[in-house]
């Protein structure tokens, strides 16, 4: 609600309520002017919905991924999913400039999805020895994947025309400004689907915390669980990247914060992380819109500016201890 009120133009809450009601067709005695209605319904509302959706999705994906890899530092951004998706999206933008806007709107997220899947598969495959995922190897593999993707994006930046350049830089820093109702409608089924499906795997993910062999001894089909959870995460994260570019550290910050309060059991962790991520994201969006108003600070810069020091603090606090995340 705050996200609807505050912006480069401040609007009183009453106007918002009136606009929303008139937009769904209710006759209003004192209807606000059409400009206000348009600002709210077509500009601010999709942003807020997008922020909630992406925040929830990134945070829950981060939480699930940390459980999957049994490491609290696993983040879709660290293991290459997001940068792979961004590279593929950038490649699509540069390679297919001639496509009609609607075709691009499909081709870009589609290639982001494939790129994310590929990058995750590469990192996960490299990190697996004797059926066990080695965490340090995974993070290093993710680092290498990120560097490779950065090199690829750099190359694309140097060959891209100005229009594509702007598009690509949008991906690099993350922004909620591009997406409208169409984009939300296209991706919502996947993102919301993953949001609903992942918590149903809570018990199996809890068992996986014991170790892969131990989870199998408890009757969990570990390979299938890993594949399907990873697929759900990649699906959701690739959609998020396709909609809003690279937004880092939400998937690290929110789950960690929730885990400190509710413990690592996934039953509570996954929904709570989604909630925390949604709140965090809409707050970040609010700040990004108002801090330099009327200009906009890319939200990815903001989350990185908050998230990176936090990540370092986590490392600092835990550097001595092998256990007790």
């Amino acid at each position: 609600m705050l996200g609807l009120c505050w912006g480069s133009i401040a609007l009183p809450p009453l106007h918002i309520l009136q606009s929303l009601l008139s937009a769904i067709g209710l006759p209003m005695a004192a209807a606000p002017d059409p400009f206000t209605v348009a600002t709210i319904v077509d500009l601010r509302l999709p942003r807020v919905v997008l922020a909630l959706m992406i925040g929830a999705s990134l945070a829950q994906s981060g939480a699930a991924m940390q459980g999957l890899f049994r490491n609290p530092l696993a983040d879709p951004g660290l293991v290459g999913v997001a940068s792979g998706a961004a590279l593929a999206a950038a490649a699509a933008i540069v390679a297919l400039p001639a496509l009609a806007p609607w075709a691009q709107a499909i081709a870009t997220p589609a290639s982001a999805f494939v790129g994310g899947l590929l990058a995750a598969a590469i990192a996960a495959r490299i990190a697996r020895i004797d059926g066990a995922t080695r965490v340090t190897t995974l993070l290093l593999a993710g680092l290498a994947t990120n560097a490779l993707a950065a090199a690829g994006i750099g190359f694309l930046l140097s060959v891209a025309d100005p229009a594509s350049l702007r598009n690509i830089s949008f991906w690099m820093y993350g922004s909620l400004s591009k997406a409208g109702w169409t984009e939300i409608a296209l991706t919502a089924p996947l993102v919301v689907g993953a949001l609903i499906w992942l918590p149903r795997q809570s018990q199996a993910l809890d068992a996986l915390l014991l170790g892969e062999a131990e989870a199998r001894h408890l009757g969990v089909n570990v390979e299938r669980l890993k594949r399907s959870v990873l697929l759900a995460i990649v699906l959701a994260v690739a959609c998020c990247v396709a909609l809003a570019g690279l937004i880092g550290f939400v998937g690290l910050l929110a789950p960690h914060w929730v885990r400190m309060r509710l413990g690592p059991g996934h039953q509570a962790l996954l929904p709570a992380a989604a909630l925390a991520g949604a709140v965090l994201m809409s707050a970040a969006d609010l700040v990004s819109r108002t801090l330099l108003a009327p200009q906009e600070l890319p939200i990815g810069i903001l989350t990185a500016a908050i998230g990176a020091p936090f990540f370092l603090l986590m490392l600092f606090r835990h550097r001595g201890s092998v256990e007790g995340w």
Binding site: L209, A213, R259, G263, G265, W325
Partner: peptide, 13 residues
């Protein structure tokens, strides 16, 4: 059931 030799649980369950 299988009791493993080493435990891998690092999360604070």
């Amino acid at each position: 059931a299988v009791l493993p030799q080493h435990d891998n649980l690092r999360f604070a369950l």
